[in-house]
Amino acid sequence: MARLNGKIAMITGGAAGIGAGVVRMFAAEGARVAIADIDAAAGKALAAELGERGIFSPLDVTSEGDWQRAIAQVEEAFGPLDILVQSAGISRPAHIEAASLDEWRAHMSVHGEGAFLGCKYAIQSMKKAGAGSIVNISSVESIRPGPLFVCYGAAKAAQDAITKTVALHCGEQGYNIRCNSVHPAATYTPLLEQYLKSAPDPAGLEAIYAGMQPLNRIATVEEVAHAVLFLASDDASFMTGHQMYVDGGVLAKPYPKGEGA
């Protein structure tokens, strides 16, 4: 399949999890991909898998200098950006009484400042290409945050506001740059697997997570990546400012109670 033939994409948080799944799928669809991450070892290893199609860009998404350098690197290696996927993120669940101010600031910084800087610098590059698509990985927790996600939910909600306002701005300016978000629920990533392993009853917790979705299972990274691919591609040419749920139906049903929610 060649849905992204000739396209140049940058994936933040591309070294692992959903980001890495997107990297692999995009490369398989013909894109040249810059894997932008703070984890150089994993990022370089993945870039090596892609051969000529992949490069690694060191990127701390909260650093404006890193963004400038990373975009310049991609432009020099491949050309102006067609696609930016922002998958970099952290998630350390804690409710309001247990969470520290430092945790709040860390979550808001990575997701809020990261999305702000990413959109700002991606637009600059995409204007040179004449068109572009930004896909911000959000979460069901931005729409309906559970008590354990006071920091994460708020940070993702801030990211969502950026997604929408950027979509409006680019539309109104006539830039032909679209901006959308994808909202996964529980997804099999190293982050989730780590969280499950550290639970007193991993199988029980996994069943709880699966049971939150009407589909009664947890998503694969590929299932989320397919939504990202669609939004990134020209097939979604009339889609902007959309919040695309890849959530197994969890947001359609009454709020789940209990551990992990």
Partner: peptide
């Protein structure tokens, strides 16, 4: 395959 109960919007923003 993991999308159900969603309202996919294609409306130019």
């Amino acid at each position: 395959s993991f999308t159900t109960g969603a309202l996919l919007t294609a409306d130019g923003g």
